[in-house]
Structures are given as C-alpha cells and as structure tokens.
Design a protein around this nucleic acid. Structure first.
Lengths: 265, 265
DNA sequence: ACCGCTCATTTGTCTTGACAAGTAGGTATA
DNA sequence: TATACCTACTTGTCAAGACAAATGAGCGGT
C-alpha cells in the first residue's frame, strides 16, 4: 500500500528471504502454513506469495504437494566423486541408507545416436538398455539410463544389480577393470520421461551427467545419462583422490548436514 | 482425446516446448516477439506465457531484458576440468576469447568462518580477499571470491592476475606447486551480492563451487567460492586426465556448439 | 558534436478472481 | 468390518488488468 519503502527489493524476494530464515529453525518434514495463510500474513496476493515459494522449492528448502501442503525438506545429501568411485561405494562408506531399483532392462534396444557414438557401435546396431532409479533415505535422488555394447548386453543380468555395486558387476562380467571415464555435466530442464521418474514437473532443472566408461584397452563398455535432482544432492570432489584423505581432517566443512550424513549403520 | 492417459499437459509447458523447437532454428542474439504478441498468438494470457518464458530462460535458451525484449542465447560454453587445470589454461586451449576482471582486492579482510577453517587460520585472523569476474565472448560466466593466508596475501599483486593464469601466479609467488584440491559443488539460489556481479535476479540458481587448494606439504594456500551461471556453462571431466585424450576422437559430442567454440585466435 | 529530455515500447511486479485436481478424512452403504 | 463415496482443504493452472522500471530512439538545446 502506498509503497512506504522504495520497492527496490521485490516483495516476493523479501518474503522468500524471510521464509528462508524461519525455515532454518524448523524441523524437516514439518508443514508450512497454507498459501492463503501466508499471503494474508505478509499482506500480499497468493500469486506473489507463490513466486516466493517457487524460489524456496528451487533451492531445495521445501517441497510442495497439491492437496497436502508445503513441507520442509531435509538437508541435501552429498555425493562424493573420486575416479571410478561408484554410487554404492560412496553411500555405503557414508553409512547412509540407499536403494537401487531397476525399472527396466532391454538386452536389444535401439540406442540414441549420441550413445551409439560413445560406444563406437556401427549405425543400426542394437545395445542393451538399463533404466534404474536410486533412493537415499527413501527419497528419489537420481535416474540412470545406461547402455551396453551387444556382447556385454547379452550376458548382463539386471537382477544382479539391485543389491550390489553396478560397476563392480560390470567389471566382473567383462573380466576387466574400468580405468577411464569421460564425464559431462550440465544443468538442463528435465524431459517428460525423466521428470516422471524423478517425480518432478517437466522442465524442472536437473543435473544431467552424460558419461562413458572405458576399460584399459580404451574400449567403451558403458555409456549413458545419470540425472540428479539438484534440490536433493550436492557434490564433492577430492584431488588427488587416493590416499591424501588422512592429511585432511575428517571433513569439517559446512555443519548443517551432520545429522543426515553421520547417521551410521 | 480428453485425456487418454493421465498426462494432461499444462499450457505453459506446451508453449515452452513449441518455443524450444522454434528457437532451435533461429540464430543467437535475435529477438523473440514481445510477450503480448506471443500471448496473442498462442491464445493465452500474458501470465501464462511468462511461465513458459521462465522455463526457457532457466534452461539457458533465452535471456530477457526489461525494456529490450527476449533474446535468443548463444550455446553454452564448456568448462573442462582436469586436476589443477586452470580456467585460463582450459579456455586458451579451446581458443575462446575470455577476460578476467579484478573487482577488488583487500590484503587484510575478515574471512567468513568456513574459509578460516579451510585455510586453517586461528580465530580472528585476517586473510587476503580477491574478487573477480570472468567473461567468455564478453558474456559473464562466473564470479570468484578467493581468500589467501596472511603470509601470501601481503605479497599478492592482484594486478598481475588480470592477464595471466591465477593459479600459476600463485604458484610462482609461493615457490611451490599446487598438488591437491578439495572441491564441493552445489546448485543454490544466488545471494544478493553474487546475483549483482553475475547480472542475475537474486535467487536465480547458480552452481556454487567451494574449494581449497593445497601444496604438497598439505598446507592450504587458497580457498574460496566460484559461482557459475548455469545458463551459460556446462562442465566436462576426463579420467584419468592426462594423456588418454588422443584415444578419444576430438570430442564428437553434441554438435550444436561448434560455432561458438571453434572461434580461435 | 554533445548532452539532456521526452516518450513509446517492453519486461517486471502485483492484484483479484476463478476453476481444476490431488489429498485426507469422515460418512454412508453393503 | 470393509468399501465406496463425499467433502473440505490445499496447491496447480489460468485470466484480465494495472502500474513500475529499464531501454532506446527521437528531439531539441547548447
């Protein structure tokens, strides 16, 4: 009303900042007041309030559900990367509960062209296709679409993946170690399919990792795309990867995520 | 039709998809029709059309400017990572024009606590603070906030950074090579300050990289945060990093970015 | 040539209002 | 008791309109 202050800062950003502070002191999974209540409290319209909530949701602080309400999210999990350091290995070392669910496996699927190139397959060649989703503490964090050359695809038993380390299974199958990775990361809007698997609205930004794994001879044995929910994950790299971990104190760092990460099994 | 499956697609998503296809065939830096024209053409309200444009903007396809219009963005640049592979080295090898601009340097600033911990400084200790922004093809891509231990900070000459490789300058200064990195990446809403430097609206998602560089003795000599605009960059990693580059063909990959990337000097 | 002004254009912010669709809990019915 | 339905509640989608703020082009004065 009668803009008392110069509206240099838009209301939806001011409200978002206020809510960010208040949320920081509330426990995860608790319910925020409804949009109408919040709009009334801040003296703004529901449309404007929703703009603020969108900012919070994009930042991973809350999740919103039609018919249920707005829920405060638990802290992000940390995915640590080292060369050839698998999802299973990482999460197991962190002592976090996780689950891998195979959605489908086709031994002779038709791969998209960029996968065919990465696997160095001739035009028209088929490839194995494995689709899976991963959960940490029962929350979906990523979706893998993995493709395999025909020789490997024929012998792959996807049911072996569920409980075990996918890369280790693959290495055992071919009898060689994976020694090289080509990895590209990009933030892009999710496709309809990926959004459905990750339980997101299509167009929501995700972290898409396009990768190729090679054995020592240089031959590619796996290629695909791993799509992470950026509202639930962050990523950590250490170089040189191997032993210098002890030169570092046990990762002092941020301090907000201790509750989720130091959970032990 | 009604709804064959439960897939009822909202109008703003359908419009976004249509515009995505049309934009793919248009040259970068060209102007889109105005919001009112587009809204009229699609037969929707301006509010709904704007929801579609927000999706395109978040995906990095267009940039919008009050008073000017909506402009189609050039393709993303690729930032390639290898251990201790600097921004300057990477972009130079790609033959892309870039510029580093020092915004400020304070030899004795008060660092935030998480920086103090990373540099292993006692409470209350000062640290050098360097703020800079990088441009590629005259477009802002990232903002660095770099902190240095007092002994280094006193001797650092920020004007030496502008034209040269920042890490190399630092190595020359201390007479040691950087051999270890600790690196954490997270997608977060931009702060007011970072948003201003990156010319973004506060709250826009950015890629925040929090890092610490160490010399061989294990001592940290630099720590800070590098914030990338995710609408302008993607990221590429290769492991093992060093020589196997030639085993790979010269990055066949996507195919859309050839125009911008092969610009050479 | 240069500077400052006005003004139409365009996107940014915000309001009120409406209906759709998913959720959860209670109620009626078998 | 168990099932189906009904209903209140909550977020999702969409509309039409209003004013603010930034831009850039045109105009006029110095």
């Amino acid at each position: 009303m009668a803009n008392a202050v110069k509206t240099r800062v838009p209301q939806y950003q001011a409200v978002a900042a206020t809510l960010r502070r208040e949320i920081a002191g509330l426990p995860p999974n608790s319910l925020l007041p409804t949009e109408l209540q919040l709009a009334k409290r801040f003296g703004i319209s529901r449309v404007t309030l929703r703009e603020a909530l969108v900012l919070l949701e994009q930042g991973g602080l809350v999740s919103r559900h039609r018919g249920r309400g707005t829920i405060i999210s638990p802290p992000k999990i940390t995915r640590r990367f080292s060369p050839l350091y698998s999802f299973e290995q990482d999460l197991t070392e962190q002592g976090v509960e996780f689950e891998t669910q195979v959605l489908s496996y086709e031994p002779e699927a038709t791969p998209p062209e960029f996968i065919r190139e990465r696997l160095r397959l001739p035009p028209g060649s088929a490839a194995g296709f494995l689709s899976l989703v991963r959960r940490v503490d029962s929350r979906i964090v990523c979706h893998d679409g993995r493709h395999y050359p025909p020789a490997i695809a024929a012998r792959l038993r996807p049911e072996r993946i569920e409980g075990r380390d996918a890369s280790r299974v693959l290495e055992d199958l071919v009898g060689m170690r994976i020694t090289a990775v080509d990895w590209e990361s990009e933030i892009i809007p999710s496709s309809m399919e990926t959004a459905a698997v990750l339980e997101l609205s299509p167009g929501t930004l995700i972290l898409a990792n396009t990768f190729t794994y090679h054995v020592e001879s240089g031959a590619p044995i796996e290629a695909g795309v791993i799509s992470y929910r950026i509202d639930r994950c962050k990523f950590r790299y250490e170089l040189p990867f191997s032993q210098h971990a002890e030169a570092e104190p046990p990762v002092p760092d941020a301090g907000r995520d201790s509750a989720a990460v130091t959970r032990g099994r």
